[in-house]
Write a protein that binds this DNA or RNA. Sequence first.
DNA 1: ATAGTAAATGCAATTTTATTGCATTGGTAT
DNA 2: ATACCAATGCAATAAAATTGCATTTACTAT
Lengths: 143, 143
Amino acid sequence: MHIDPVNILKDHDLKHTKQRVRVLEEIALDTVAISQPELEKKLGKEIDRVTLYRILNTYEDKGILHRIMDMNGTANYAICSSSCTEHHHHDEHVHFNCSNCQKIYCLDVKIPSIKMPPGFTASSINTTAYGICEKCSAGMKAD
Amino acid sequence: MHIDPVNILKDHDLKHTKQRVRVLEEIALDTVAISQPELEKKLGKEIDRVTLYRILNTYEDKGILHRIMDMNGTANYAICSSSCTEHHHHDEHVHFNCSNCQKIYCLDVKIPSIKMPPGFTASSINTTAYGICEKCSAGMKAD
DNA sequence: ATAGTAAATGCAATTTTATTGCATTGGTAT
DNA sequence: ATACCAATGCAATAAAATTGCATTTACTAT
């Protein structure tokens, strides 16, 4: 996937700052989602903790990133597919949370449609599988 | 569903204490899951904050409760179906998280089976739908 | 280019949430 | 009834998130 932070910012009417660019760069490095604590560890020297919170929030609001909660309630972030807009996320693919390396993958697998009981109206749906990822099962070496 | 806290404790070799009974009673009151903060609010006068944490953890370990993370990373708890054991949860039904009242329902809907990509081995899977629940759509009055 | 404006950042302070250690209390088996 | 061990409560600490404000930085119009 080709990520151009500068254009992403332009496209969403966000000011171009080095902190914002760095966050996008860092997240684009890997195809798997990265957790907020990891980001903090990597960028902590360059970007203030609070600023990071704020950047992640606006990115999520704007539909640039999507946020996946893992089993422990920590936020993980991945770049949204191009179809995401400010008010509707289309990250309706299956996530995979490795119980060995903790990484969260955005799988190229659609979430099957599910019939809701009468009275319940679903506007979005999220499914995440837990288990061992490909890297960990080959070699079983953590990260 | 018929819940007998005393027997549940016996069945899992847990000591019978009034705090443990109260937690189970409180959770059994409603068919929907209850969040940790809500529990704390309801039981805060009777049970110490720390004790509540510990009780919820042991219940989860023992397979008495299952924990569902909501969109905000807060833990919600519901009584496990009878088939849960200490080392394997069978809460493989769809959850519904109402964006109005925040309640989490355990729907009587099975999670469809999903084929994992090569290399990925799923041991459990979780899907939660977000939207408006039956109570909120009838009347649109929050809790 | 420059100045003006509004927004983004960093820092400090605060709040909320979670965890740990230890003395005391309370169940349970004998 | 007693003794033992686990569970509880309290205090202290740690970790995570939030808020307010002064300063800096990007963009716009001139």
